[in-house]
Write a protein that binds this DNA or RNA. Structure first.
Length: 404
DNA sequence: CCTCCACCGGAACTTACGGAGT
DNA sequence: ACTCCGTAAGTTCCGGTGGAGG
């Protein structure tokens, strides 16, 4: 009885399943990236002049999610800066994920902070932070390479285009003792086309396209990684091929495949089983989806939750609803809860946001005489959505009624 | 072939908030 | 103490628009 905790700790210490679980984590960068040899080489060629203290060309990497863009960039830059250290050449690199730091202010301060400038998280103007960054850069020498992962999130915000533009020509604002090179990463082709021509020609001096992995390639990648991650013989024969097949169905997403494999292993371990079976992979798929949904739904603003709840109710009654129908239902909910309702325009905006978050799918349809609207389907798992919604005490009551 | 519905979606603006610089 | 700043959520205003029905 008293040893329940000890048992848990002991089990954690000697994992039967994993040897090095962390090599399956999303931000782990392996020493080798099979099937990305030409991209690695190409990017290395582009950045190598930094070793001679010359400004490397800017590069733009694009391809769908999980095609190895980030891993290629990180691996090349890790190796490059290692070489630079050996030769005593001043080359630094800064990695910023724009999606995590969405706004121009936060992106600028992330770069500045990576270079050792202390920046308050609010209170200054973007211009002021940018000035501090420049001041720092002017005191440096050699080459600084800035990686902007998921750059497509930058121009979506106001001032984002401006920041991108300033960054592409930052070298003209510096004295010449330091050079800044940019590596942009995006999975949106539309982004590349939406760029101002002068930004595109500068950021995309070199453009590298990453094709999706094929199913056999995914299988190969997983097999290599699995050999390192798991104890010998714990994987059932079908596990790796299944992960590869499921991920291949989603346009060859390697991160997805690795997630499936890792979570399947974690599940097997939690259940105290000695082997990872195909059944665990299917369960992993569900768990990953539930976690994703709950993460998103839990952090939604109140009115977005109510809109989502309205969608679920209407779908329960049959046919996919239109924006107007959702709005009517939503308004009834707010009356019931004694709240002010937001405008139709806002609800329309919330619906697009939920679409982008992968909670629902909507397509714009024209019903001729009867107007043009969106036809909205729930994309996420209904039960997962309801479970996450009921974590909000304000919303929970209504969710209960829906279940009964 | 034209109309006109029921929205779509861009843009500028408000409000409330937490915080910085001087 | 005063002014300025960015962010998130929301509002106001408004120019589109695909296609069924007249």
């Amino acid at each position: 009885m008293t040893d329940a905790l000890e048992e848990v700790f002991a089990a954690a210490l000697k994992s039967r399943i994993f040897k090095k679980r962390w090599v399956l984590l999303p931000d782990y960068v392996p020493e080798e990236l099979p099937h990305r040899e030409s991209e690695l080489r190409r990017l290395a060629e582009v950045l190598a002049p930094a070793l001679r203290g010359e400004k490397p060309s800017n590069a733009l990497l694009y391809g769908l999610t999980g095609t190895g863009k980030t891993a290629v960039a990180r691996l090349v830059l890790m190796r490059l800066s290692k070489r630079a250290r050996e030769y005593g050449v001043p080359v630094r690199y800064v990695y910023v994920n724009v999606r995590h730091r969405e706004t121009p202010y936060r992106v600028t301060s992330a770069i500045a902070e990576a270079l050792g400038v202390r920046v308050p998280f609010t209170g200054l103007s973007v211009g002021e932070v940018y000035e501090r960054l420049l001041r720092r850069l002017r005191r440096m020498q050699g080459v600084v390479i800035v990686v902007l992962d998921e750059v497509d999130f930058l121009p979506k915000r106001s001032g984002g285009q401006d920041l991108l533009y300033r960054l592409t020509r930052v070298n003209q604002e510096l004295g010449g003792s330091v050079w800044v090179g940019l590596v942009g990463i995006t999975n949106s082709l539309g982004f590349v086309e939406s760029l101002e021509p002068r930004v595109r020609s500068s950021l995309g001096e070199v453009e590298l396209v990453f094709p999706p992995y094929t199913a056999p390639q995914l299988k190969d990648i997983l097999e290599r990684r699995a050999r390192v991650a798991f104890n010998p013989g714990v994987l059932d024969e079908g596990v790796v091929p299944l992960c590869a097949a499921l991920a291949a169905r989603e346009h060859g997403d390697a991160r997805r495949a690795l997630d499936l494999l890792r979570v399947a292993g974690e599940l097997a371990e939690r259940r105290g089983e000695a082997r990872v079976r195909e059944e665990h992979v299917y369960a992993a798929r569900m768990e990953i989806e539930r976690d994703r949904v709950s993460e998103v739904v839990r952090t939604l603003p109140l009115h977005a939750k109510l809109v989502l709840l309205s969608l679920v109710s209407l779908i329960d009654e049959g046919r996919p609803p239109s924006t107007g129908e959702i709005y009517e239902h939503y308004k009834r909910l707010t009356v019931e809860l004694g709240l002010e309702s937001v405008t139709l325009r806002r609800v329309s905006g919330i619906l697009s946001e939920l679409d982008m978050l992968g909670i629902l799918r909507s397509r714009v349809v024209s019903r001729g005489r009867y107007g043009k609207t969106r036809e909205i389907h729930l994309d996420a798992d209904r039960e997962a959505v309801l479970a996450s919604l009921s974590e909000d005490p304000m919303v929970a009551r209504i969710v209960e009624r829906l279940k009964g």
